[in-house]
């Protein structure tokens, strides 16, 4: 599944998925196992692990996919507790909140954002070379787990 492997590559990572078990359903991608594949009929809504969705040709990863990539070699920025909180509120990552940088961190490269427990909080794009930047916002927040709350809010709005 090219959009998924291409996305992983942007994080300087490599992910190999069993093509037989990766299913595209409308604009969403799912990873099944043999058992689920045997049981799933065509009209499922969700199955196995949702990997992400494609909108207008752009791939948006799920948090499950990000966690899968986080288990592998990839660009990673580990942040402190205060920055963790700000990041899940949608803010960018500031240089002073970074505990550790793993992998290539040139301006424009994509990176996972992890907390001090190595749990994946989302991903972003380096605004400057992380090794050289002295201060200020260094990673632009693209997606963070606070999105779960935003989804709830938007679904409440839609209902009311």
């Amino acid at each position: 599944m090219k959009p998924i492997t291409d996305f992983a590559r942007q994080l300087d990572s490599n992910i190999s998925l069993d093509e037989d078990l990766t299913v595209r359903k409308k604009n969403r991608y799912f990873l099944l196992n043999e058992n689920l594949k045997r049981l799933a009929s065509k009209d499922f809504f969700h199955a196995g692990i949702c990997l992400g969705k494609e909108i207008d040709g752009v791939f948006f990863p799920s948090f499950n996919l990000l966690a899968m990539i986080a288990d592998k070699r990839a660009n990673k920025v580990i942040v402190d507790e205060k920055t963790e909180w700000l990041f899940i509120c949608g803010r960018d990552v500031f240089k002073r909140g970074i505990i550790r940088v793993i992998g290539s961190m040139k301006k424009g490269s994509y990176t996972l954002i992890l907390n001090s427990y190595s749990e994946c909080l989302g991903f972003g794009q380096a605004l400057s070379d992380l090794h050289e930047a002295k201060e200020g916002a260094v990673v632009n927040n693209i997606l963070d787990i606070g999105d779960f709350l935003r989804r709830e809010k938007s679904s409440v709005k839609t209902r009311s």
Binding site: L36, L39, H46, A47, G48, S62, A67, I145, E152
Partner: peptide, 30 residues
Amino acid sequence: AIIALDIEKRRLTALSNQLERCRVENTITY
């Protein structure tokens, strides 16, 4: 495997979000 059903499609979106948040891997929803 868990086969999870709901009659309301809108509620299935909430269910999918829960499955994603909690890293559930063994469920098919209809």
